[in-house]
Amino acid sequence: MKDILAGDPIAMVKASKLLCYDKSTTSTLLRFLEAETRVETRHALLYALTWHGHLAQWDLMVGILKNVQEAPLVRGQAAEYLAYNFLGVRTDSTEFKVAVDALLEALKDPSPEVRYCAVHALGNTGHPPLLPVLQEMRQDPTPVPGWAGTVSSQASESMEWLERMHENRLKNGS
């Protein structure tokens, strides 16, 4: 646990990958996140929380995504949390609408990383009405340092994901 706060990037990555499998650490990670100001550490904490799959952090992650004072790395990780947890939220819920609205706003962000992660998350919604938005994002050829591809290539991939996730939603009745 101390390695995630250590400031050593290699130790932080290892710690966040280990902690992502230990859901008993959620409350501790949230406490650390509340007090932490360093971008890389906030990112590592959010990464671990993303994989815990607790929908109790949904509003927190939407708030982080919407907070333009947060670093793009942190906001992108908040979008990743939403991406990996969308199937646990019904498309007719307030939570779904608030998250989608935040992601749609993030598509206008000056940071290509935030746009890339928002496109990825929208693809994971499994919500067909969002296909035109993803189609439009295929016009953004901006490369994203640290990620494979461009906003455009991620939009194309996300369109395929959206269709698969929609099929999953239909099977699960959500």
Rank of each mutant, 00 (worst) to 15 (best):
M137T: 09
P72W: 00
D109G: 05
E105I: 08
A102K: 02
S153I: 12
M165D: 15
R75V: 14
L122I: 12
G7H: 04
V114N: 10
K108I: 03
A99V: 06
T125E: 12
T26D: 05
E136I: 03
G149W: 07
L55T: 08
Y81W: 03
Y81F: 12
L130Y: 06
Y81S: 00
L134A: 14
M165Q: 15
E36D: 09
E70H: 01
F32N: 03
E95G: 04
R90M: 05
P132D: 07
V114S: 09
L134T: 14
T150R: 06
E113G: 10
A102R: 02
K97L: 09
A106C: 08
V89R: 06
R138E: 14
H166Y: 15
D109W: 02
P9Y: 02
L162N: 15
C117E: 09
N67F: 01
E163W: 10
F32L: 11
A56E: 09
P129H: 10
M61D: 00
A48T: 01
L134Q: 09
L49E: 07
N124E: 15
T142F: 05
T26Y: 04
G146N: 04
P132E: 04
E160I: 14
D59T: 07
E167F: 03
Q139E: 15
A35K: 07
K23G: 07
R169S: 06
Q135T: 14
I4V: 08
L30R: 10
D101G: 13
L87I: 14
R38D: 13
